[in-house]
Design a protein around this nucleic acid. Sequence first.
DNA 1: TATGAATGAGCTTTCATTCAT
DNA 2: GATGAATGAAAGCTCATTCAT
Lengths: 220, 220, 220, 220
Amino acid sequence: MDKPIRTRRKEERPGEILDAAFEEFVQKGYAATRLEDVAARAGVTKGTIYFYFQNKERVFVTMVRELSRPTVAQAEQFLAEKVHETVDISDFLRMYLRFFYQTIVADRRAGEILRLLIAEAGRFPELVDEHFQTLVGPALAMLHEVLADGMKRGVLRSSPVAEFPVLLLAPALQLNIWLLAYANRRPVDIAQHCEAAIDLILNGLLPRPDEERSGALTNG
Amino acid sequence: MDKPIRTRRKEERPGEILDAAFEEFVQKGYAATRLEDVAARAGVTKGTIYFYFQNKERVFVTMVRELSRPTVAQAEQFLAEKVHETVDISDFLRMYLRFFYQTIVADRRAGEILRLLIAEAGRFPELVDEHFQTLVGPALAMLHEVLADGMKRGVLRSSPVAEFPVLLLAPALQLNIWLLAYANRRPVDIAQHCEAAIDLILNGLLPRPDEERSGALTNG
Amino acid sequence: MDKPIRTRRKEERPGEILDAAFEEFVQKGYAATRLEDVAARAGVTKGTIYFYFQNKERVFVTMVRELSRPTVAQAEQFLAEKVHETVDISDFLRMYLRFFYQTIVADRRAGEILRLLIAEAGRFPELVDEHFQTLVGPALAMLHEVLADGMKRGVLRSSPVAEFPVLLLAPALQLNIWLLAYANRRPVDIAQHCEAAIDLILNGLLPRPDEERSGALTNG
Amino acid sequence: MDKPIRTRRKEERPGEILDAAFEEFVQKGYAATRLEDVAARAGVTKGTIYFYFQNKERVFVTMVRELSRPTVAQAEQFLAEKVHETVDISDFLRMYLRFFYQTIVADRRAGEILRLLIAEAGRFPELVDEHFQTLVGPALAMLHEVLADGMKRGVLRSSPVAEFPVLLLAPALQLNIWLLAYANRRPVDIAQHCEAAIDLILNGLLPRPDEERSGALTNG
DNA sequence: TATGAATGAGCTTTCATTCAT
DNA sequence: GATGAATGAAAGCTCATTCAT
């Protein structure tokens, strides 16, 4: 029990280290995390980390990439399904929002990584850009297409929102940050928050039969 | 001839230090900021900081509080004006949103402090809570009141959004994070973003004359 | 006695540190020297070294430069005196050799620094070149001039040695290395070694009246 | 088909490791050399080194001994030939000097090992002494004998050089150090350097027919 | 024989903090 | 009030050495 006999597990070690790194980085942030604590949590010693990773920075970057992988895969699959071409636009938007709530709010790992990325954006700009390219960009591009198409077809109200599809993701982002910043001190019902966002957004986007000109309400 | 300068300085020193601290903390984050750099930027030496502040943590906390002060004052004034009691609800919501865009997006200091708070939330939970109590909480309380009242009076569609007034702030928060995370790499037109958010939200909240039951669109 | 009260001596500290560094580097070599030992020997703590020097390399380089200074000054003075223009060439060469024995053999500091430079030449090529430029080069240039002039005037035998003035310094270099490599295990009488070298070199350089052609003995 | 290669390897491994060690130690010095680099250069892994050698120190010591072997053998053969008893003393001295230039200057391995020994003398005093016993000592003893005998027979000028035969090796040592310290930055023509040394030394040692008393030139 | 994952002591370097002046 | 030399507790990283396979 004292010295857990030296075990070799080349296959699993890196993953174990990255899992440990995730917990530590999330808890303390990049700079305040000690690699020794990561090692201890992974059940190895400092030296072992340096056997698998070049330095602290590489541990962080690799961890973000590796733990983002399932999220990226899910998102790619979701975006590839092209359900929007066959489904009612309201239904599609509901699905879309729920998917994002699922991804960046309900999934702790994905949510924490997003927050970590925001918090450490200044130190890891390339990582942030990478994240944009693989996740945010494609998701926004698809939304943009759906919105523009819906407006052209008249199933959506014509609105400047078409140019800011990111607005549809804002609620999920807000909740992500809220939950992680206030931790357990200000709990929120995720499902209700999501449904409220859907209510607001769908009503905001669907045509208003009472109006001749779209955007009538917009000018102040 | 010498004196006046020295005297003036004496009173301004703490403020100069906090200004310098703001720049450094924003650039590097809490842990990676060196008090020596703060001192250099403020034109003093490390020792001087310790004359005015107990330690690094106090410098950070005091900086956040002190530099938040004008924002808090503005917000308090805005919330106290009670214009919502006299003005058309659409106009009020427009003003409200624009005010927040002004505050947490266009005002660099307020915006950066918000981001700092998000990034360092784990290390300074009390500061986050304080921020909630003085800024976020009151703003949300007032919004909640306005929304609930509007729905009761029928000038707003009855909707679960009433219980999540924070949804109205989500767009500004999203833009704040976007700008600070992507820095200058992905510029956004703030005014247009704001107007798009207003369009979405107002249309999402105002009554839909074509429908009997509110929320008809909500169920999936 | 326990904690030698923190004393400030900005003026003397760097010198004390360099003196301590000299002893440690000489004893252990560059790589094997611990800055902590240097600090202890100088009566300060590790941190203090970093207050005055950027890093270990700078400590080494600065030490070599600083402790070479008196030697360089002596050499410059010696070379500037131009006694060779007024003195009998035998007398001059005797002075010259004795001066170098004094410098790189009898003077422990200069001798050790020379050996350090030889030992660490691979890691500090610029330092070696600097040493050449300030010490070796000028000394050889002057010797070359004296030898060439002497041979032209016929007071020295014409010989290929003119092109290799460094041969006159070889004995002192050899003794330097001998003493430092064998430490006290193989003591040598410096003065006798020097006089033997002078005997060999003067007899080797002065004209041989029995010969018509110089260099008669050289061909094998 | 496989076997022969493996078998051959098996016997050559230690030698391959020592060759690799030589290159690394020469390039970086003892302390700065990583056994991992030695292993990589030898085409094996770190563990293998520990199979053949107890530790880093033994690798170094064994390498010096092993790679010195051919040099020692050559020297022993040369010294055993006793050509000095049959050959003209000038011819003998020429041969002697040329042999040493060949050995410690022209032969890169022997030259580097000599320099390594000088550089690391402080850490490996026994190795230095061993080197003295097997190489330097015998060579000097023989020289001493030849010089003393020559002076007694009158074929050499009587001189204090008899007691410092090492002076005859000084030029080769100087050139060895020069070449290794200045690497390729200050090239020297080895053959000419050698011939100049021979010229200086022979003329310095052979009798001067113009003088009654030997050593007349020596007193300053 | 050989491997290479794992260890852990040790080293350089950093920096918040102190304190004599 | 202000300085800045000095401290010392980390923390990142390296590498000789070990050992299960």
